[in-house]
Design a protein around this nucleic acid. Structure first.
Lengths: 148, 148
DNA sequence: AAATTTTTGTAAAAAAGTGTAAAAAATTGC
DNA sequence: GCAATTTTTTACACTTTTTTACAAAAATTT
């Protein structure tokens, strides 16, 4: 099981590519060649990135909870599988090319940040990320509410 | 189970590295090569450091209690996994390299102190630590209030 | 089919990170 | 207490990663 830990900045080049951080690359092993699924995060203004393998596992778990003879389930599945892309880091530099619609949807222009979240990686516009951090008090309150 | 005991000073070199104390290194065994997770402490102005193994155990326990289709759970996980880094002491000297954002966030510039806290290690800016120590009277009063 | 746009690939410069060596300081053993 | 060992500090060399710039190939449009 791969755990992504740490935050790494990256610049978007003139063709919309960004280098996947070397530290993450190093722990991926063979998963690297299978690529990653990138999609918009559900609640936050960022993208999320799964190894192909972990995406497969997660999406199967979701699918197993749905009934495709149910209208809403069918609509949910359509939305859930929308606006995704499969990316594979290139050989020499480890760059990934994310469609500009996805980058634009979360406000990524020049500076992006890869954030390790254990089982997934989030990709943020640097400015949005800075604005998103919780205060200590908010975090404690949230922890209490969530786990308390 | 590893218990870290004692306090050790360390200087930050020009590349932001500091040597992990030999006394701690000695009791880590194979855990050393797997590295440590360093993150900002919740209530105090210092960093905390867990063996990778103990971090993994803890974070999996937390994750297992979350539902990522719940908005607050999703926010909590983001905060919980923020401002972390994975460090591995280097072969020859046992130095660890902590991102300057983390060092700066707790005011570490030149002199740091590693403080053993049994299950974890705290890393303080020397000046902050001196200023933080409780007086004997305050400690006694707090003990009475907490456990008495 | 030619020209343009888009995508993908290569190369070199800059920046960041990692490793080596030796001097200084601290610790340990005698 | 002094010598020997280990650890820590300092300084610098080297490697890797990232950035920038540009070239080749593929796809699309005119």
């Amino acid at each position: 099981m791969i755990n992504f830990i740490g935050e790494y900045k990256a610049k978007v080049d003139d063709k919309g590519r960004l280098v996947f951080p070397a530290a993450f690359k190093a722990i991926c092993g063979e998963s690297l060649a299978k690529g990653f699924v990138v999609k918009k995060t559900l609640f936050a203004n960022c993208l999320e990135m799964y190894t192909y393998e972990s995406w497969e596992k997660e999406s199967e778990a979701v699918r197993s909870r749905l009934n495709f003879f149910n209208r809403d389930d069918e609509r949910f599945w359509r939305a859930y599988t929308s606006s995704r892309t499969l990316v594979v880091p290139d050989e020499k530099l480890g760059r990934i090319s994310i469609p500009k619609e996805l980058l634009e949807s979360v406000g990524i222009e020049k500076e992006a940040v890869f954030c390790g979240r254990d089982f997934k990686i989030e990709i943020w516009a640097k400015d949005s990320l800075d604005a998103t951090n919780l205060s200590d008090d908010d975090y404690v309150a949230l922890a209490e509410k969530t786990l308390g």
